[in-house]
Simulated scan of single mutants.
Amino acid sequence: MSTYFNKVKDYLLNLEYNIVQEDLAEELFVVENPEGGIANLVVDCEDPILIIEGLLFEISGDKDDIFKSLLMKNREIVHGAFTLDETGTKVLFRDTLQLENLDQNELEATLNSLELLLSEYSEEIISFSKL
């Protein structure tokens, strides 16, 4: 186990995130913050980086307009970005941070960015998920 795992865990608890799953062997957490609209967010210590990733929605219909809208919105996201899984059908939020000099403010900024994205862009995300 790296020294970063416990540090990240402490930060998540200080930020009042619920740890719904913890995998010591893989050095990852699944967290939620219902008040911020966050559920099943994976926080993975992959030395030298911390990966924060969560599924937002799946798409099956016409993708061109959705992709264009997501790419345009990426420009406005403070931390992190929309990404696709390897199948191109799952839209994820993803951010990476350096573990070596990670502080609580950096992690909080990423989590706040996701919460802001979900609150400001929720109608679009819901409509995309129905296509």
Rank of each mutant, 00 (worst) to 15 (best):
S69Y: 06
L15P: 09
I51A: 03
T89G: 02
E120V: 10
L118S: 09
N101C: 09
I51T: 05
I126P: 09
E26F: 04
L111A: 01
E108Y: 14
S119G: 00
G54Q: 08
L15G: 02
K90V: 01
S127E: 14
L56D: 08
L70R: 15
F82W: 06
N112L: 11
A25N: 13
D23T: 12
V20F: 05
L118P: 05
S119R: 09
E27W: 02
Q104C: 12
D62V: 07
M1R: 06
I51F: 01
V8I: 08
N74E: 05
H79V: 10
L118V: 07
D95L: 08
N101V: 05
T96S: 13
L97G: 04
I66E: 01
S122F: 10
E58R: 13
L12P: 08
F82Q: 03
N105T: 09
R75K: 11
V42P: 01
S2E: 10
E26G: 15
K7R: 04
I125Y: 08
V78E: 15
G37D: 14
M1T: 14
L84Q: 02
F5S: 04
F93S: 00
L97M: 03
G61A: 13
L118C: 10
L114M: 04
E22L: 12
M1P: 06
I59T: 09
M1D: 15
L24V: 14
E32L: 05
G54F: 10
G54H: 01
E76Q: 08
F93G: 00
V91K: 04
K7Y: 02
E16I: 11
L24S: 09
D23L: 11
L56S: 12
I59M: 15
K73N: 02
A109D: 10
L28T: 06
F82A: 00
L24Y: 13
S113P: 07
Q21F: 14
N101D: 12
L116M: 10
L111V: 08
A39N: 13
L12Q: 02
L71R: 15
E16H: 13
V43P: 00
E32S: 12
E120N: 12
E123A: 09
K130W: 03
A39M: 10
V42I: 13
V20G: 11
E106A: 12
L56F: 11
E120P: 00
P34T: 07
E86C: 10
D95V: 07
L114C: 00
K63C: 02
L114V: 07
I19Q: 11
E123R: 12
G61K: 04
T89I: 04
L15H: 02
F29M: 05
P48M: 06
L71V: 06
F57Q: 03
V91G: 06
I52M: 10
E123G: 05
G80I: 02
L28A: 02
N40Y: 12
T110V: 15
K68L: 11
V43Q: 05
T96K: 12
L107G: 01
T110D: 04
E100S: 13
E58F: 05
C45H: 01
G88Y: 02
